[in-house]
């Protein structure tokens, strides 16, 4: 009986610690004025004034659109590049295949700051400084290695008879990818794509460095740079409102696609 109560308490504690901070952010975002500065677990006079202020005082809608465009573009590009590469890496025998896969994986260990100055020069020389395509380009370094790795793992799990039948019928590689693999591979594409989307959506260092104006900022930078009248007077209500706006869709996305994400993470880590 004691063991059961202790177990139940552990479960309650885990849930409280996991979702408590987000809950408190929601409470804060609904408060203004002096209510904000009296720590309490429930808003006394809930108001959406902070939510209105987030959009009124800075181009936050534009920031959200920027994040969606960059993350979406990065997902499409990474998946397109990774699917073709994964097919070859998983199916075609050639010398140095293991070395190539290892090199690709090692890129995912690169500290971002190590490429920061080089990437800055690259983006500037392409005329893409302070633009969304420039940012998207830099994100490929973060998403390509693990999308290639994960999709290669998934393609290896597909039985060979499938494409052997297609080869017998005279299909080329692109037809095989499009007609044979993609239909079987779509759950893998969903989980890989989601992880790539989350990486791009959350990225901060590149976004902070490669954008300059409020109109090209993505959401994480916009939130980090919200400031008040003075440095010591941060508008916490507005910051929390902005945080809730960008977090809730992420949480919903992750919860809806829970199974896919977990299978993707474990395919990338455990089986690799």
């Amino acid at each position: 009986m004691i063991a059961r109560i202790a177990f139940a308490l552990a479960v309650v504690l885990i849930v409280a610690v996991s979702i408590g901070p987000l809950g408190y952010a929601v409470v804060t975002s609904l408060e203004t004025g002096s209510a904000l500065f009296t720590p309490g677990l429930w808003p006394d006079a809930p108001t959406v004034a902070n939510y209105a202020a987030v959009f009124a005082e800075q181009p936050f809608a534009r920031n959200i659109l920027n994040s969606i465009l960059v993350a979406g573009g990065v997902v499409v590009l990474s998946l397109a590049l990774a699917v073709t590469a994964a097919y070859a890496l998983a199916r075609v025998e050639f010398r140095g295949r293991g070395l190539l896969l290892g090199t690709v994986l090692s890129v995912s260990m690169f500290p971002q700051v190590a490429v920061l100055s080089g990437m800055f020069l690259l983006i500037r020389s392409l005329g893409l400084y302070n633009s969304l395509p420039g940012l998207g380009l830099s994100y490929l370094m973060l998403t390509l290695p693990f999308t290639v790795w994960m999709l290669t793992t998934f393609v290896r799990q597909i039985p060979k008879d499938l494409e052997e039948a297609a080869i017998m019928d005279g299909a080329g590689p692109l037809t095989i990818i499009g007609r044979v693999f993609l239909p079987v591979l779509w759950p893998a594409l969903v989980s890989t794509g989601l992880l790539a989307f989350i990486v791009a959506w959350n990225e901060f260092l590149f976004a902070l460095t490669f954008t300059l104006t409020a109109e090209t900022r993505t959401v994480p930078v916009a939130i980090a740079l919200i400031s008040g009248a003075s440095a010591h007077e941060l508008p916490w209500g507005r910051i929390m409102a902005a945080s809730v706006i960008v977090t809730v869709p992420m949480v919903v996305l992750v919860l809806v696609f829970q199974r896919w994400i977990v299978s993707g993470l474990t395919a990338g880590a455990v089986k690799g």
């Binding site: 996991s18 979702i19 987000l22 959350n202 992420m250």
Partner: peptide, 15 residues
């Protein structure tokens, strides 16, 4: 349990 993982790092730092 997945919620903290889903929250962007910048947001969790601010929270």
């Amino acid at each position: 349990v997945l919620v903290p993982w889903a929250i962007p790092t910048v947001v969790s730092a601010k929270m």
